[in-house]
Amino acid sequence: MTAFFQSLGMSYEWAWGVATVCGILLIALPLMLAVAMIIYADRKIWAAMALRRGPNVVGPFGLLQSFADGLKVFLQETIIPSSANRGLFLIAPIITFTVALMAWAVIPFNSGAVLADINVGLLYILAVSSLGVYGVILSGWSSNSKYPFFSAMRASAQMISYEVSIGFILIGVVLFADSFNLNEIVKAQLGHGLGLVNAFGFNLLLFPLAVLFFISSLAETARTPFDLTEAESELVAGYQTEYSSMSFALFWLGEYANVLLMCTLNAVLFWGGWLPPLDWAPLYAVPGIIWLFAKILFFFFVFSWVKATVPRYRYDQLMRLGWKVFLPISLIWVFLVSGYLMLTRYS
């Protein structure tokens, strides 16, 4: 894109700057639109599984429901509790929202279609997602209220626990792909299974990791069955109890942007990203971005499906699953994967 702006007669610095801003807008604006529609889709799927109709009043099939909700929230008054820590109270939703957008910089949408093609892309995502916990902690602490504080404690412990096993799971992928760059990881999946299928997920050695990563990503985004941070029967609404108006909306958007990010990571790391699922020439006629979106939407459907059907874990069960089940399994798999690669690729 820099070359295009340079051809319009700009100097390199200006062309680079304009191209980067355009790239950011090209990712962020469709993302916000996607988040609005995905909230609608989430409610519709959830309703359909509970044999309800879901949102069906605003616009055709209720399609404009999220926008109506957004407008309503926008017009509300922002209430700040008198005993809240004002500065941190206002910064917390901004952190959540910003961090949820930041990680998208390294996601490859097609071959070469990536905003920041850095060679530590996966580490960047881990770093950004470890920042995400601060929005929750700060909102819970600064509200100066019991339930948000409980929720913040739960959320931070939960995210830290599952980030550990996610880190070990990602090592398996990195070993196979031989790169931390997300685009290289996608390319490494080309014809991975006997030259027939384009995905690490079809590899019998990596498939358990794909399942673990999917469950961990449910926990990382605090979706059902791990939504203890928003357990309404115990904590009112969790860390966002004291929030209203746009500050609440930022949490809401950030949360769903994170869900989409996790779906995208599932697609990119284990299921071929922008590659078609089969290594068969006619399938490459479909643009890569459509394959990626189809995979993201599929994983989002599974997220909703889980939300509609699985009951919530108890907190000690959640911790046990993270530390006593996922962590040992992912550690063993690091040994298995590296041993397999030592035997086959590097001997």
Binding site: L123, L126, A127, S156, I160
Partner: peptide
């Protein structure tokens, strides 16, 4: 040193600071 930079964020910002905050 992009690797060190990312490790700095992951290790210090992510883990140590969270424990400190606790």
């Amino acid at each position: 040193a992009e690797f060190i930079a990312m490790l700095l964020v992951i290790v210090y910002v992510g883990a140590v600071a969270v424990l400190f905050l606790f």
